[in-house]
């Protein structure tokens, strides 16, 4: 082997997300849940102190998980471990990087500390960020995000917002591909996005990073719906461990994500799953409780 080895390149950071495609990443709050997730076929786990449904119910400031807990989860499973840091909290992110987490989610589920996001290019560990539309996705990629996810309303068990974000993302990408070179600067202004990335999307017709569905996914059909809308994979937050039978539901969501084009298989895995998590109607939710509006 030649002596030149490079760590933390865009290709290496984005590459791990490529390996997670077609898979399900599950929120876990302890090592036991991480093991259940791994055995159910999760491609990665997301370590956090409270799932979004509990953060929503209990209120207060939500922060990075206890480093001791993150380490316990890392030691319990062989699959990648992600963890959440607050938007803009570059010290929480450094702490998580030092623990050896494989991906950091700079997440609106936690309480933001700054109007600026973390400068993700200065890290070796890759970041995933939420995006409601193409402009937000390109701003985060411009800051160095190596993976994007929808910003569906967390902890609600209601997938409507994730669907809205994915539809908007798809239509904005399609729109860019119809523009001529003379129109792209104006499009960049409209999207509030870096011109170089706008040019790239106009040419390729796709995001340069993987885009997963996140926020409100509670059933195998929800997962398959998001895959059919073009997502590369699925994050399940409260949907698994806030349901009646987490182990069985986790397996069912994994299988529905692989066989998302096969309604008979989705029917088979969905039968007799027990109680889904209790859902929340987002239309009647007060504006200050909407997490997707945090960070832009």
């Amino acid at each position: 082997m030649d002596t030149s080895t490079e760590h933390g390149t865009d290709r290496v950071k984005r590459g791990l997300a490529e390996m997670l495609k077609g898979g399900v990443i599950m929120d876990v709050v302890n090592a036991d849940q991480a093991i259940i997730a791994e055995e159910a076929g999760a491609v990665a786990v997301m370590a956090l102190e409270r799932v979004p449904a509990d953060i929503r119910a209990e209120g207060g400031v939500a922060r990075m998980a206890d480093p001791g807990l993150v380490t316990e989860i890392i030691n319990a499973v062989s699959i990648p471990v992600m963890a959440k840091a607050r938007i803009g909290h570059f010290v929480e992110a450094r702490v998580l990087e030092s623990l050896g987490v494989d991906y950091i989610d700079e997440s609106e589920v936690l309480t933001p500390v700054d109007e600026f996001h973390v400068d993700k290019r200065s890290f070796t560990v890759p970041f995933v960020n939420g995006a409601k539309d193409l402009g937000e996705a390109l701003r985060r990629i411009g800051e160095g995000a190596a993976m994007i996810r929808t910003k569906g309303e967390p902890g609600t068990g209601n997938v409507v917002e994730a669907v809205r974000h994915m539809r908007l993302m798809n239509s904005q990408i399609a729109w860019l591909t119809t523009l001529g070179p003379d129109q792209l600067m104006n499009a960049a202004k409209e999207l509030r996005a870096p011109i170089e990335l706008v040019k790239e999307i106009a040419e390729t017709g796709m995001l340069p990073v993987v885009n997963f569905a996140a926020g409100g996914i509670a059933t195998p059909s929800d997962a398959a719906l998001m895959m059919q809308l073009g997502c590369d994979g699925i994050f399940v937050g409260s949907g698994v461990f806030k349901s009646g039978d987490p182990d069985v539901r986790a397996r069912a969501i994994v299988e529905a994500t692989t066989f998302y084009q096969d309604p008979a298989k989705i029917a088979e895995v969905s039968a007799g799953l027990g109680e889904a998590m209790v859902g929340i109607n987002i239309d009647t939710m007060p504006a200050e409780e909407r997490m997707q509006d945090r960070g832009d």
């Binding site: 082997m1 030649d2 030149s4 080895t5 490079e6 760590h7 933390g8 390149t9 290709r11 290496v12 590459g15 791990l16 390996m19 890392i74 990648p80 990087e97 050896g100 987490v101 494989d102 991906y103 070796t124 560990v125 890759p126």
Partner: peptide
């Protein structure tokens, strides 16, 4: 190692004239 140890490097493969740019991820 874990993801922070993931890397890319040029690797010589028997039977191929030039090295490959090899991306090693976990």
């Amino acid at each position: 190692g874990r993801q922070v140890e993931s890397f890319e490097a040029d690797v010589r493969v028997t039977g191929l004239a030039d090295p490959m740019k090899a991306v090693f991820i976990r």
